[in-house]
Each structure stands twice: as structure tokens, then as C-alpha cells.
Simulated scan of single mutants.
Amino acid sequence: MTFQEIKPKVTDITLDTNLSRDEKLLAVCKLLNESIDYYNWVGFYFANHETRTLHLGPYIGAETDHTIIPFGKGICGQVAVSNDNFVVPDVAAQDNYIACSFTVKSEIVVPLFVNGENIGQIDIDSHVINPFTDADERFLEFVNEEIAKLY
């Protein structure tokens, strides 16, 4: 399925009045995981700015021990500080990387902004080296724009 085909499905999920916010987030994770073959782990982390930590929200994929990540640590923690997308073509080449699983080969993290504030991020792991393109970044920015409407 193409990104263009998935976009209206994301919007439909976010507009579903029968689902709670967390159920919507989980449904989006499931949709992305099932629709894009190289999206092997899809999840959301949310920021606690007082403690400068990220907290794992809904996700689909292998269990992770990384339920709380300090700002600045790993790819997610760096995005919490930089407010910029971060694409890692090969996690083995990254110094500040928190390994979730030996099967993860690459990662993309895109911040989630609500009213100009970085409240969290969508995090995607892939079992493939270097699968992410500019199209993935633009698509995930769209996903986060739709998710931001829930806050």
C-alpha cells in the first residue's frame, strides 16, 4: 500500500469517535506496521518536560525494555532535544543508539508537535538497512499532524 493510500485511513482512525485516544494511537501503529513491510516496530513516545524523559505509549512490535528514555539518550532522546526528524540508515554506525533488538537495522523518529511544542514522537524500527526516504519523513510528518489533532 502506498503512503497516499494510507493517509485517508490514518485520518479515519483519528476521527473515529468510538475509540479512545490510546486506541487510536494503537490503531495507527497497527495500520503502519501492517501496510508498510519495512515498518517492523511502530510506536509513540511522549515527553515529560519536567523530568526530561520520554515515556512509551502505544506501540506494535517486539516488547521493549525502553519504556522511559532520558532526553538526549538514543535516537528518541536526541529528537526530544533537537525537535528535528532523525533518520538512521544503519544503527550499527550510530554512537548514541539504544539497541532494542539485534534484528533492528535502521530507525526513523519524527517529533510530534502540538501548538508548537514537541510533546513526543513516532518511532519506527526496521529490520532492513537504509529503507527510509524523504517520502517516509513527509508521510510520518502527516501522521503526526493528524495525531496532534487529538491533543
Rank of each mutant, 00 (worst) to 15 (best):
N85K: 14
N85A: 14
K73H: 08
E107Q: 08
A80P: 01
D65T: 11
L140I: 05
G43Y: 05
L25K: 07
A47T: 09
D22P: 12
E107T: 08
D95T: 05
W41T: 07
V104D: 15
L150T: 02
I119A: 13
K7Y: 11
L150A: 06
E50Y: 05
A47R: 09
E5G: 14
K9I: 15
I6W: 14
D123P: 15
C29Y: 00
V81H: 08
Y38T: 06
L112G: 03
N18S: 13
Q4Y: 14
H66K: 13
T64M: 05
F132A: 03
C100H: 12
I122W: 10
F46A: 09
V114F: 01
V88M: 08
N40A: 00
A47I: 02
K73T: 10
F44R: 11
I36A: 02
F44V: 04
S126W: 07
D136R: 03
I69A: 06
K30Q: 10
G72I: 09
G77Y: 07
N96R: 03
P111A: 03
P58H: 12
P58Q: 15
Q121W: 06
L150H: 03
A148Q: 04
D12K: 15
T64C: 09
N83T: 12
D37H: 02
Q78C: 11
E117L: 03
I124L: 11
G74L: 06
I13N: 14
N115H: 06
G57I: 08
V79Y: 10
A62F: 10
F139Q: 04
Y151P: 00
V81P: 02
N18I: 06
E34V: 01
N33R: 12
K30M: 02
F86Q: 11
D37G: 02
N115W: 00
G120V: 13
V79N: 13
I75K: 13
L54P: 01
L32W: 07
L150G: 04
P131Q: 04
E63C: 00
Y39W: 06
I68Q: 15
I98V: 13
F71D: 11
V28P: 02
F86E: 04
K73A: 14
D125C: 14
G72L: 12
D65F: 03
S20T: 15
A99C: 12
Q94E: 15
S126F: 11
A99D: 12
S82C: 13
V28R: 10
S35M: 00
Y97Q: 07
N40S: 09
P89T: 04
S106E: 05
C100R: 11
P111T: 01
A47Q: 03
K7I: 13
I119R: 14
F86V: 01
Y45K: 09
T133C: 07
L32Y: 02
K9P: 07
H55A: 11
S35L: 01
V114A: 01
L150F: 01
D95Q: 04
I60Q: 13
D90M: 06
G61Y: 04
N115Y: 10
P131R: 08
Y45W: 06
A148V: 01
S82V: 06
I108V: 08
A148G: 03
L112N: 03
F44S: 03
F142T: 01
A93N: 10
V110T: 14
H55M: 10
N115P: 00
E63Q: 04
C76R: 08
N115S: 08
E107M: 05
E141C: 02
S106H: 05
G74K: 05
I36R: 04
K149C: 07
G77I: 06
G120R: 14
N33L: 00
F46H: 09
D125T: 13
A148C: 04
V28K: 09
T53E: 15
